[in-house]
């Protein structure tokens, strides 16, 4: 009984110390003690983030072989390569919490782990490559800038690196849109159509309104999250509306207007039924994206096995030599 009591009070002391540290704005390193719920929350969030980077390679990869110039192909390939790289260091950062990449991929395949809903929409024309870079990466940056100061140090360090690259992507996406808006009638139509299709899903990337956000309370107390969904969404809208106007794109929201008193834009109602439907698996590309990932993973199994077998053989040989 005494032992149990001791363990409980020891745990309480550790928790108190942890909370104190977080409140003081200190970073948590992998070797530091942390409550199980904190660890779980981070694994959920970081693996979701890593999977999003990797699944996000698909809609953009869809246009790599059809990029309209050598320069455009180069920029797009380099961007997708960056996303893959982000996936890698986020997987590594998440591994510091005691989960392997293999387990994370299993959780993605069995539906336990998610990825960003935005990638369940199709990239239909070349203008979508512009819209994804400008709007989707633009929304991601707003979110990630705020995560640079998140309390878990490996996550925060990964975010600092990622943010630098993402801001390039956003500018490159905007450049595609700007160029198309200065082009032929067909190009302008293509750009506006992409804008119409990607605007609302981009706003949904920030998640439900604060009043409906299920994971928020602990995340704020532990300083994993620093700003609310609605604050970040507002920030994104305010910076993007002007950018659209400059190049002559119309934001597909008749209720959008500047609110002088609040000093920000008011916007129309987000279709949360659509958001929830897509999250539940019924979006235009949910099945396609996951099937693609599963198939590629299964098709590549023999290559990974060959590498493993080779390594083991040669490890044995070098042991024998010694």
């Amino acid at each position: 009984m005494d032992n149990v009591q001791n363990t409980v009070s020891k745990e309480e002391a550790l928790l108190a110390k942890f909370e104190e540290k977080v409140q003081a704005g200190e970073a948590i390193e992998p070797r530091d003690w942390m409550p199980e719920a904190y660890r779980k929350h981070l694994i959920r969030q970081m693996s979701q983030h890593a999977h999003s980077e990797v699944i996000g390679m698909q809609p953009e990869g869809n246009w790599v072989t059809r990029a309209p110039s050598l320069r455009a192909k180069q920029i797009l390939l380099a961007k997708i390569q960056d996303e893959g790289g982000h996936g890698l260091y986020l997987y590594s950062a998440a591994e510091t919490l005691g989960i392997s990449r293999k387990e994370m991929i299993e959780q993605l395949h069995n539906g336990k782990a998610k990825y960003s809903n935005i990638f369940n929409y199709p990239s239909l024309t070349w203008a979508d490559i512009g819209a994804i870079g400008w709007l989707v990466d633009g929304a991601a940056i707003v979110n990630q800038v705020s995560l640079q100061r998140t309390s878990y140090a490996p996550y925060s360090r990964a975010m600092v690196r990622i943010c630098k690259e993402e801001s390039f992507h956003q500018r490159q996406g905007y450049e595609i849109m700007a160029q198309m808006m200065q082009g032929t009638e067909e190009q302008r139509e293509m750009a506006q159509d992409a804008m119409n299709r990607w605007w609302w899903p981009s706003l949904m990337m920030f998640g439900p309104h604060d009043t409906d956000s299920p994971h928020s309370a602990d995340a704020f107390r532990w300083k994993i999250k620093r700003h609310t969904n609605d604050e970040l969404r507002q920030k994104f809208i305010d910076k993007t509306v002007q950018q659209a106007e400059v190049i002559g794109l119309t934001i597909p929201d008749p209720d959008l207007k500047w609110n002088e008193a609040k000093g920000c834009y008011d916007y129309g109602r987000i279709d949360w039924e659509e958001f929830n439907r897509v999250i539940r698996g019924n979006g235009p590309c949910n099945k396609q994206r996951l099937d693609h990932h599963k198939k590629v993973h299964a098709d590549g199994a023999w290559v990974r096995e060959a590498a493993e077998a080779y390594k083991n053989k040669h490890k044995k040989q070098s042991v024998n030599l010694n």
């Binding site: 990797v54 390679m57 698909q58 990869g61 790599v64 072989t65 050598l70 192909k73 180069q74 390939l77 380099a78 997708i80 390569q81 893959g84 790289g85 996936g87 890698l88 693609h292 590629v296 098709d299 590549g300 199994a301 290559v303 990974r304």
Partner: peptide, 25 residues
Amino acid sequence: SEWCSYAPLIEEDLALTNLSLDMIG
């Protein structure tokens, strides 16, 4: 570049993209 998002592991996706980028240049 057709390998993009099709490689057996992410590391290899990045490596094949690197090769492709060198050749575009």
